[in-house]
Design a protein around this nucleic acid. Structure first.
Lengths: 197, 197
DNA sequence: ATCAACAATTAGACACTGTTCAATAAAATA
DNA sequence: TATTTTATTGAACAGTGTCTAATTGTTGAT
């Protein structure tokens, strides 16, 4: 054993997180195994704990990566210059979750222990998603109401999130709702209408 | 070994689920252990699997019980004849989640394997919560719009759920939002206002 | 060139997890 | 009383993440 050195520490961390991300996409949070990830990249079990610090941090790193993909997906959707940017945002929210079920759900399946704190680096990278929404909400509000954009945007994200959650976990299907995304758009529109005057 | 018989099968199941419920409240989904539950009630490991069928079914039973407590909590809130029943419903949604963090989160932390199906019994008991909301939403809609109550009610539950999720998992606090519940009420009111006329 | 210090990696032990299943003992039935 | 049923066990099994002593390649100083 000892230094193998085909990887720097940073490269190894990248290798672990990217393979972990792949594994998460395949099996989901409940069946995720850091031992399996180790096996796949040809490293020993303990190495992952050494490099990432703990299982929780590995999951946090994987989920942060998912956030970045999601943010990129939203930006790409908007870059297509859709007629209705707000509706496009909801569509992007839903379609990412739908096409990346396991990854998306893992974000909300995981919570770090109450004593542990999320690294600042991770927080910043995750915040980018909400910032897009704040920006777009501000754009549709009248000039004198723009200061309300941040609070309203967060609230609208929560609204869409609730609809997306129930869409994916089957709650809506169970109750006969066939268009959760349309419902989410309707709620968001109502709130935006109420905000301008 | 052999029949001990201080419990019928149904009584034993009740014992397991109620102790499991207590354990879930204490340690939460991530640290829940059916072995620990077995130890606490003085039964052997395998007995739980025998009686409940599987770990997943045990969790499903525990969560169904939580749904029932939650429903009772909402009814109790309404029984106090609040001035605003819709606002009271949101308050009841939030306060139950707040006061029973681990139990409430466990509901959404758990998903059964795609091949398994939730027993009808469980579904019926869980549906009671949504039915309350449908009833109350119908009550505030004008007569000619009452047929829209079921769909709208589910959508509003999703809205409130999203806000409650972000409130409890810290997303709101992180972004400086101090009144998630007020935000949820505001969104619900806007949608109800839009629905009548 | 040698040697010590350092950093990277490992294997295995550890304490857990839920599930399975042959063995067993007590109650119910004949 | 003898036989069948039923309830319950507990050890074995295949997993999990974490920890730690041992080991080895690399680096820097002498």
């Amino acid at each position: 054993m000892g230094r193998r050195s085909d990887h720097s520490r940073a490269e190894l961390e990248e290798l672990i997180v990217s393979e972990g991300h792949r594994h998460m996409a395949e099996v989901g949070f409940a069946r995720f195994s850091s031992r399996e990830v180790a096996k796949r990249i040809g490293y020993a079990v303990g190495t992952l704990t050494n490099v990432l610090g703990s299982y929780d941090r590995l999951i946090a790193a994987i989920n942060t990566r998912t956030f970045e993909l999601w943010t990129a997906h939203l930006e790409a959707t908007l870059a297509r210059e859709p007629a209705d940017r707000i509706e496009a945002l909801v569509e992007g929210y839903f379609s990412f979750a739908r096409d990346n079920r396991s990854l998306w759900m893992a974000i909300y399946d995981h919570r770090l222990a109450p004593d542990e704190i999320m690294p600042d680096d991770f927080m910043t990278r995750r915040a980018a998603l909400t910032e897009i929404v704040v920006r777009e909400v501000a754009a549709v509000l009248p000039p004198d109401a723009k200061d309300k954009a941040p609070r309203l945007a967060r609230s609208l994200v929560a609204t869409v999130h609730g609809h997306c959650t129930f869409a994916l976990n089957g709650s809506f299907a169970l109750l006969g709702e066939t268009d959760p995304q349309g419902m989410a758009v309707a709620r968001v529109k109502e709130s935006l209408t109420a905000a301008e005057a």
